[in-house]
Amino acid sequence: MYSLSNPTAGRESEFTSRRFRSGFAKVGTYVLLCALAVLMLLPFLWMCSASLKLDKDVFRFPIQWIPEVPQWNNYVKIWTQIPFLTFFGNTAKLTVIITLLQLFTSSFAGYAFAKLDFKGRDLIFLAYIASIAIPWQSYMVPQFIIMRKFDLVDKHMALILLQAFSAFGVFLMRQFFISIPNDIIDAARIDGLSEYGIYFQIMLPLSKPALATLTIFTAVFVWNDFMGPLIYLNSQSLKTIQLGLRMFIMQYSANYALIMAASLVSLIPVTALFLAFQRFFVEGIATTGIKG
């Protein structure tokens, strides 16, 4: 806190003391940020370290961060002790299908909500918005009953149908399309382009950043989803990675190192995706959150 005005203090000395203080503040900020970063990453670092130990050494204290003899074998064992590969395959399949459907239907609908004028638009869009605010869990039971009626329980189709048509995707795409000036569309209309032509030739290429954002959000959501598969999938051969991981934890609760290795492996795809596209994450959160 510097004083409001001090006519007696020379300009120069005030300047240097301020610079000194701001340099001091900067170092402080860095120290604080680094400490926080370590705190945030500590569980993952510990996971990494524990995954390379023998079970009996996992909890040895003080923590030995780098094991003397790294047990790389743990990473081989997890693939043979449980059908991890099947779980990976199932999750990848669900992630790809749901994300593609989501992209296609959401951007289509989002465009109409943003740029076309039609009867009932506001009302239908309100229903979409309302459903974002309503906890999914409050209607999960009727959803389950409907799926059972169609004989879709214990099938991947149930999860695909539940997650491919999210209101969130429509909302995100609409927010993006609204930011595109109407002049472009009007010009295209005058040139005689149909609405479909406008969408496919002009809007779709323009919306790449929004589509990337939606891809990341959907893919991460599906990959990490636990409750959906927990409710719908019973057969071993259909389970997803999160369910498989949970099963593994319950079955081998004392195999700490293996559990950590399996957890770490389950994090890799999402981490890679996130690091590659994190720009779109940040933009997506800002788009859906703040702009309007």
């Binding site: 289509f108 609908a109 465009y111 076309l116 009727p142 959803q143 409907i146 491919a164 999210s166």
Partner: peptide, 23 residues
């Protein structure tokens, strides 16, 4: 316009709106 929203709206109605009403 409806043809644009229909692919999403059908799924949304069947698996979100109807279950909501049903609950």
């Amino acid at each position: 316009a409806y043809s644009f929203i229909l692919p999403n709206l059908l799924g949304f109605a069947a698996f979100t709106l109807i279950p909501m009403a049903f609950s």
